[in-house]
Computed example of a mutant assay.
Amino acid sequence: MFTKVLSQCLAALTFYTCLPLPVSANLEFRGIARFSPLVGLTIGGLIGGLDWGLAWLGMPVLTRSAIDVAAWVAITGGLHLDGAMDTADGLAVMNPERRLEVMADSATGAFGAMTAVILLLLKTVALSEIATGRVWILMAVAGWGRWGQLVAIAKYPYLKPTGKGAFHKEAIESIWEAVPTLLILMGFSLMVRPGMVIGSAIAVAVGALLNRKLGGQTGDTYGAIVEWTEALLLCTLTML
């Protein structure tokens, strides 16, 4: 059991990040979405470590924040940002029947490009307004974003017979599979900064809104949930 869990955790890191990890044919990719919030905590910890190092060197907070966000994209290979861009292009189409077709197009449209700029700006500016506890906040924000993705996978129908998110949906059978990482993130948030538990509400709301707009989810919307939850939670934390 422990070996299987360890294999899935390593597989989740391999799938969701560009970290130079050892590749093994024995990795178990089925069901890795249930570990994605833990991947988020890891990503946030790495970015937080970078931020701490830059602060120690005397770099101003706005410049640090911009580098942090750039590293955020680099670690994930832009996986979720690409999904947010494709989702924006699809939602911009007035004809609902063409939305999935547009989202599947690899070419980035105007709305996708604007969405990427808005997300990166929101994250950079909001992060620059947060002076303390930045390492913990980065960890929680990245964790809640991926927990929202897990909830969407478990709760909503998948709109395409195949696709980059189909194997996630096949492996996650119940919303109860999101409970273990919910408890981890709740405990972490309450210990560090209680206001961060609002990330759970934001994560669920973003997924519900996209489901209402499209009637289900795709691999692209999973990425959009991650990105918008992260951005909106960072913005919210500037007021708490």
Rank of each mutant, 00 (worst) to 15 (best):
N95E: 15
N95K: 14
N95D: 15
P96G: 08
P96I: 04
P96L: 07
P96E: 14
E97N: 11
R98E: 13
R98P: 10
R98F: 06
R99V: 13
R99S: 13
R99G: 13
L100W: 01
L100D: 07
L100M: 01
E101L: 12
V102S: 02
V102G: 02
V102C: 00
V102I: 04
V102N: 04
M103H: 00
M103I: 10
M103T: 08
A104M: 07
A104H: 01
A104R: 09
A104F: 05
A104T: 05
D105S: 03
D105P: 01
D105Y: 08
D105M: 08
S106T: 11
S106V: 08
S106R: 08
S106W: 14
A107E: 03
A107F: 03
A107H: 09
A107M: 06
A107L: 00
T108L: 06
T108R: 05
T108M: 10
T108V: 15
T108C: 10
G109V: 05
G109T: 03
G109H: 05
G109L: 10
A110F: 09
A110L: 04
F111I: 08
F111R: 11
F111W: 13
F111N: 08
G112W: 10
G112S: 04
A113V: 15
A113E: 03
M114W: 00
M114P: 07
M114V: 13
M114Y: 05
T115Q: 10
T115R: 00
A116F: 01
A116Y: 01
A116I: 01
A116H: 04
A116L: 06
V117C: 13
I118R: 12
L119Y: 12
L119C: 12
L119F: 10
L119D: 05
L119W: 11
L120P: 00
L121I: 11
L121W: 02
L121K: 01
L121R: 04
L121Y: 09
L121H: 01
L122A: 04
L122Q: 00
L122T: 06
K123N: 09
K123T: 07
T124Y: 11
T124V: 12
T124S: 14
T124C: 11
T124K: 15
T124A: 14
V125D: 02
V125L: 09
V125N: 03
V125Y: 02
A126I: 06
A126M: 00
A126F: 09
L127K: 04
L127G: 10
L127A: 12
S128M: 11
S128H: 11
A131V: 13
A131L: 13
A131H: 15
A131S: 15
A131R: 15
A131K: 15
T132Q: 14
T132E: 15
T132N: 14
T132C: 12
G133Y: 07
V135G: 02
V135F: 05
W136A: 07
W136Q: 01
W136R: 02
W136T: 11
I137W: 01
I137S: 07
L138M: 11
L138F: 05
L138Y: 01
L138Q: 02
M139K: 06
M139V: 05
A140S: 09
V141S: 08
V141N: 04
A142V: 08
A142G: 06
A142C: 12
